[in-house]
Amino acid sequence: MPIRAAVERVNGIVRGWVNYFRVGNSGQAFGKVKQYVERKVRRFVAKRAGRRGLGWKRWSREVVYGAWGLYGDYRVRYYNPSKARLQPNGIITPVR
């Protein structure tokens, strides 16, 4: 399996998980998940290349998150009720 295809499969799962748990206090867990996913992807690429280790010196984070396209938006978003809209913005059409 090509690297980009493997990373795309991983990204779909991680992106959904992060978006589900993003609201709240999950920053510490996100750090652990990000490190785990990066290690797994590095190990996959190293095995594919027939090398030992995880390639920390071989591939920088710019390569992993930039060139390979690994998902990296693990920011926590806090719910702010003062910014929430109570009334919809626009016209609502009834469903028949």
Rank of each mutant, 00 (worst) to 15 (best):
G90N: 04
N25M: 05
E8C: 01
A29K: 10
F30M: 04
V23M: 09
T93K: 14
D73G: 05
E62C: 00
N19P: 00
Q87T: 13
R77E: 12
Y20W: 04
A29M: 03
R75W: 01
A67G: 01
G66A: 07
G27T: 01
V23S: 10
G27L: 02
W68L: 06
W17M: 11
R48Q: 15
G31E: 09
Y65V: 00
V23L: 13
A84Q: 13
Y71C: 04
V63H: 14
Q87K: 13
V63N: 06
F44M: 14
W59S: 02
N25G: 11
G53F: 10
E38C: 04
V18A: 06
K32L: 11
R75H: 07
I91W: 13
V76N: 04
N80C: 08
G31P: 01
R52W: 08
G69F: 03
G12E: 13
P88F: 05
E8L: 12
R75L: 03
G27W: 01
V33G: 01
V76A: 06
E38S: 14
V41F: 05
G24P: 03
V45A: 08
Y78F: 09
V14G: 04
V10M: 12
K34A: 11
R15D: 12
R51T: 04
R9E: 13
R42A: 07
N80W: 07
G16N: 10
V64A: 05
K34R: 15
E38M: 04
V45Q: 11
R51C: 10
G55L: 03
P88L: 09
G55E: 04
N80S: 10
Y74R: 01
R9S: 14
L70N: 02
Y36Q: 11
G27C: 00
E62M: 03
F44H: 12
N11F: 05
R52D: 14
I91P: 07
W68I: 01
V63R: 15
F21T: 02
K32A: 13
G66P: 07
R42S: 07
V33S: 00
Q87M: 12
G31F: 05
R22A: 10
G24E: 02
G53E: 08
V18D: 06
N80P: 01
G12W: 02
L70M: 06
R22K: 11
D73T: 00
Y20S: 03
G31D: 10
Y65P: 04
R61K: 14
W56H: 12
V18P: 10
E62A: 14
Y79S: 08
V14A: 02
G27K: 06
R9N: 11
R85Y: 11
G72S: 14
T93F: 15
G50L: 08
K32C: 03
V37M: 08
S60E: 05
K32D: 08
A49R: 15
A29N: 06
Y78L: 11
Y78E: 10
V64H: 06
V10R: 05
K40Q: 15
D73P: 00
R85W: 12
Y79T: 02
R39N: 14
G27F: 01
A29S: 08
